[in-house]
Design a protein around this nucleic acid. Structure first.
Lengths: 201, 201
DNA sequence: ATAATTACTGTAATTATATACAGTATATTG
DNA sequence: CAATATACTGTATATAATTACAGTAATTAT
């Protein structure tokens, strides 16, 4: 999908804000008034351009007939099994998506990851649970993190992190700590867990 | 708030459906067409009646200027500590509410209950977690239920349920099974847990 | 018993809105 | 270098939409 210009983005945001605030889209005149245009036709032409780029649909003849097209940015992907090698958010890993507006958790969640295995049961993270992962939340010692070790994705508690030693702890006595030297093995902290979701318990 | 008549409710539902389907409210003519009125004024007068009863606000002069007023039915209450004696959903127990539309869990959740204590940690239910409770979901042996025993509310696994013996199991070796004779003690199964929510783990 | 509410038809006027047409000027792309 | 896109002004008009007014008839409150 073609990118919007700065001005077009401004107009799209105005439409979204209008819908959130009042419950329905603005008219051409509303848009013109908000942005200081002296002609409603300026708004009309912007709308046509935004429609052409695929962000909205204009229903002809209907007043306020501006329909927002589904935008991938408004969807939080739910990641199932992560294929070895590729990036977590690769399309083939996406099990489904959840509209961001339907997110009752306050935190900033980039994706949900479906938990495999029993390595975190001691802190109440069970197989098939969904973990809300934030890429930006700061990962400090004690955080539950999503890590990638030699292209394998795993969820563990971060215990120690220094230049040549990273310790990741499974929260299950059955398993031992994972000790990695990031200068020898490939290691990346993909994000940290900020939420947990479980259905039909 | 005064109750709507059957016809008024029909119209309110039509408005809501229109907003969900198209993203903006219907016009008087849209409503008339949908319900078979021969005059848009029929819709107009219904809208005025619905507004008078407090369910919508009509913005004068604006096309499609129908604003839905917040409705408590669209909010899921989050229950904190349950005061001994009173009903779970009593107002003083409601910590906050979450709009039902922001519910990414498919199940039918009547309220969220904040977990107190560690009696369910073995199945990953921790203190401060939020449990999604359904009053209508069938409670069978093996379900995690919200039970009220002698006016005390508790979350446990239902192990046995017969006429004169109900067994509720805390999922923590530290605690023993609770065995209740419902013909002697007061017992009510308030609902069963269909979801779990945890923030900032 | 009377007033108010509910539930409409039918008409019409005013205003709100979409949208076409004619321009101007600058920036970007093929 | 021409064509296309961006970003508007300015005017005009058909039509979409609100909304007032005048009725009818049945039901429900006071």
């Amino acid at each position: 999908m073609k990118k919007l210009t700065k001005r077009q983005e401004e107009i799209l945001n105005l439409i979204k804000a209008h819908i959130i605030n009042l419950g329905f889209p603005p008219t051409r005149a509303d848009i013109a008034r908000s942005l200081g245009f002296k002609s409603p036709n300026a708004a009309e032409q912007h709308l046509r351009a935004i429609e052409k780029k695929g962000f909205i649909k204009i229903l002809s003849g209907a007043s306020r007939g501006i329909v927002l097209n589904d935008n991938e940015n408004d969807q939080i992907p739910v990641i199932g099994l992560v294929a070895a090698g590729g990036p977590i958010l690769a399309e083939e890993n996406v099990e489904k998506t959840i509209p961001r507006s339907n997110n009752l958790l306050s935190s900033d969640i980039d994706y949900y990851l479906r938990v495999k295995g029993d390595s975190m049961v001691d802190i109440g993270i069970f197989e098939e649970d969904l973990i809300g992962v934030s890429k930006s939340a700061d990962t400090k010692v004690g955080s539950v993190v999503v890590a990638r070790i030699n292209n394998e994705v795993t969820v563990k508690t971060l215990i120690e992190m220094s230049q040549n030693k990273v310790v990741l702890r499974p929260e299950n006595q059955k398993y031992d700590d994972i000790i990695v030297n990031p200068q020898v093995e490939e290691l990346a902290i993909e994000g940290s867990c900020v939420a947990l979701l479980r259905e039909t318990i």
